[in-house]
């Protein structure tokens, strides 16, 4: 289990990014970490992998802190950064040999681990080529393969599917699922919501250094059923009208001929539809039910552009 207990962190000469942030990730889960650019995902991951140290609080992996058990924790962990974290001037085999030799083990153990990583990431037939000549997909797979050389129980994946073709993406996602099924705990960040929805059973959305929501994916999405009614945009502007006021009094939002909100119950949806029909405005589309992750994400983090 990963446990972050009331951690504070700030970069030098920067304001506090995390203030008493706490988070628990259960063993064996496939945990998705979402957030817009600058939300603090990579910093959080760096704290969890021991690359950064919190100014207050503690990060514990299976009850062990980095201060006293650093190498012990790192030996069972893999960090697969978003960048291609290998040597492009070396062949895939040379890269795998180099990184595997940094972990303890006999020659034959290392060889088996390399073979396993090659097999799992589908690199067979490419190992002798220089990594700089690889396609984006192959580079991503090599990046992943290097992370598997110590047979990690805990894997941190930072946007591992950026800039690759759908086939490679599918292959990588399947590999990640296979690793999780084999018992590895996986912490996964991505900007692709459908990936997180497809892969993860545990999700957290963060912004401005705070965890906004965290829990099992199904429960998060079910918690917040949403109604959306698209009205005919050809109608006269509705802002400031008594109809608008009535909608807001019911707890919904009317903006650009779209009504959105979280109804108390189904009876309130009926009241809302009655109000719309009384006004005689044609309805183009009605949706109600579970949030999609994307809708929840935008609801929590807003839609304005980030740096």
């Amino acid at each position: 289990m990963i446990k972050l207990c009331a951690i504070d962190f700030n970069y030098a000469k920067q304001p506090l990014l995390f203030n008493e942030l706490s988070l628990e990730i259960t063993k064996g889960s496939l945990f998705g970490l979402l957030g817009p650019n600058g939300a603090g995902k990579t910093t959080l991951m760096s704290l969890m992998t021991g690359l950064l140290t919190p100014s207050q609080g503690e990060v514990a992996i299976d009850g062990k802190g980095y201060r006293n058990h650093r190498f012990d924790i790192l030996s069972g962990l893999a960090h697969i950064p978003q960048e291609y974290a290998f040597y492009p001037q070396l062949s895939a085999a040379e890269n795998l040999q180099f990184f595997s030799s940094l972990y303890p083990g006999t020659m034959s153990q290392r060889r088996r681990r390399i073979e396993h990583a090659i097999e799992l990431t589908g690199l067979t037939g490419h190992v002798k080529r220089l990594a700089k000549h690889f396609s984006g997909g192959l580079k991503r797979r090599l990046n992943l393969a290097i992370g598997l050389l110590n047979k990690p129980e805990l894997i941190f994946l930072d946007e591992p599917t950026v800039g690759i073709d759908p086939q490679s993406r599918r292959f990588i996602l399947q590999s990640i699922q296979a690793l999780n099924r084999a018992g590895s705990t996986i912490v996964y960040t991505s900007h692709y919501m459908e990936e997180i929805e497809q892969l993860c059973n545990d999700v957290a959305i963060m912004d401005h250094g705070r965890i906004l929501v965290h829990g099992p994916l199904n429960r998060i999405l079910e918690k917040r059923p949403m109604v959306e009614i698209d009205l005919d945009p050809q109608q006269q502007p509705l802002a400031g009208t008594p109809f608008n006021q009535a909608i807001e009094e019911m707890g919904f939002t009317l903006s650009h001929h779209r009504i959105t909100g979280k109804p108390r119950d189904q009876k309130q949806i009926a009241e809302l539809l009655t109000a719309v029909s009384r006004e005689g405005i044609p309805i183009l589309n009605i949706s109600y039910g579970k949030h999609t992750l994307e809708k929840l994400f935008f609801e929590l983090t807003n839609t304005h552009l980030r740096d």
Binding site: T49, L51, H79, P81, E83, Y84, A85, Y103, F156
Partner: peptide, 13 residues
């Protein structure tokens, strides 16, 4: 720049 150093620093070396 490529993240290799980050990876190396998460390896027990």
């Amino acid at each position: 720049q490529q993240g290799t150093l980050q990876r190396l620093r998460t390896i027990p070396v």
